[in-house]
Amino acid sequence: MKDTEALSRTALGVFRLNGQFLAVSEQLARPAGLTAAWWQVLGAVLHEPLPVAGIARAMGITRQSVQRIADLLVEKGLAEYRTNPAHRRAKLVAPTEEGRAAIRRITPGHSGLAARLADELGEEQFAETVRVLERLSEAMHALETASKPQPLGTGQEP
């Protein structure tokens, strides 16, 4: 298989998977009163509060879309803004107890889907799939980083 064909098939497969994951995420999140996007942002801050830009980087989405969702979550009482000791203007987003409870309502469906997917793929193939997708993401990030212009004074010629 040629590199261009491999890239095209990979991209189409990832786009299809994205659509499938978004659809199932909406189904899982709806009974908890969330959307897939709200779940995604709340999930990013479950273990530690993050600034909007940090959530965007972790999730691979734009800062503006995270800001819009964070504002909605705060308005709905599912998240709160906290003071960020590292940056006065970039507040931290943290889930409220109500937000944590909503995530807990999703957990049984999420666990059930994970078990069914593991049964379908097999444990080893499931783990390999995770490894390959993480490696692909790392490679894409490396290419993005390498293609960005470097600021002057970093040892690279203009």
Rank of each mutant, 00 (worst) to 15 (best):
M1T: 04
M1V: 01
K2E: 09
K2W: 00
K2P: 12
L7G: 02
S8W: 04
S8D: 10
R9N: 09
T10P: 06
T10E: 09
A11I: 12
L12M: 08
G13Q: 04
V14K: 03
R16S: 06
G19S: 03
F21R: 14
A23Y: 01
S25C: 08
E26W: 00
E26V: 00
Q27M: 00
A29D: 01
R30I: 01
R30G: 00
P31I: 07
L34C: 01
L34G: 07
A36E: 14
A36R: 06
A36S: 14
A37P: 08
W38I: 00
W38D: 15
W39C: 01
V41W: 06
V41D: 10
L42I: 02
A44H: 07
V45L: 08
V45T: 06
L46R: 15
H47E: 15
H47K: 04
H47C: 07
E48Y: 14
E48D: 10
E48G: 12
E48M: 11
P51N: 05
V52G: 07
V52N: 09
G54L: 07
A56L: 06
A56C: 09
A56Q: 12
A56K: 09
A58Y: 05
M59G: 06
M59Y: 05
T62W: 08
S65N: 11
V66N: 04
I69G: 06
I69V: 11
I69T: 09
A70K: 05
D71R: 13
L72N: 12
L73N: 12
L73P: 05
V74M: 08
V74N: 12
V74Y: 01
E75Q: 08
K76R: 12
G77V: 02
L78E: 04
A79W: 03
A79V: 07
E80L: 08
E80S: 07
R82S: 00
H87T: 09
R88N: 13
R89H: 11
A90L: 13
K91L: 11
K91G: 04
L92H: 02
V93Q: 06
A94W: 02
P95E: 10
T96I: 02
E97F: 04
E98F: 00
E98I: 00
E98V: 00
G99W: 02
R100C: 07
A102L: 11
A102P: 05
I103C: 02
R104P: 02
R105M: 05
P108W: 02
G109H: 01
G109V: 00
H110M: 14
S111A: 14
S111M: 12
S111F: 09
G112W: 02
L113T: 01
A114E: 07
A115G: 05
A115Q: 11
A115M: 12
A115N: 05
L117V: 11
E120Y: 15
G122D: 10
G122I: 01
E123N: 04
E124M: 05
F126D: 14
E128R: 15
T129K: 02
V130R: 03
L133N: 11
R135S: 06
R135K: 10
S137P: 00
A139G: 13
A139L: 14
A139S: 06
A139M: 10
H141G: 15
H141D: 14
A142W: 04
L143H: 08
A146M: 02
K148G: 11
Q150V: 08
Q150G: 02
P151W: 10
L152T: 07
G153Q: 10
T154V: 11
T154R: 13
G155P: 07
P158L: 13
P158Q: 13
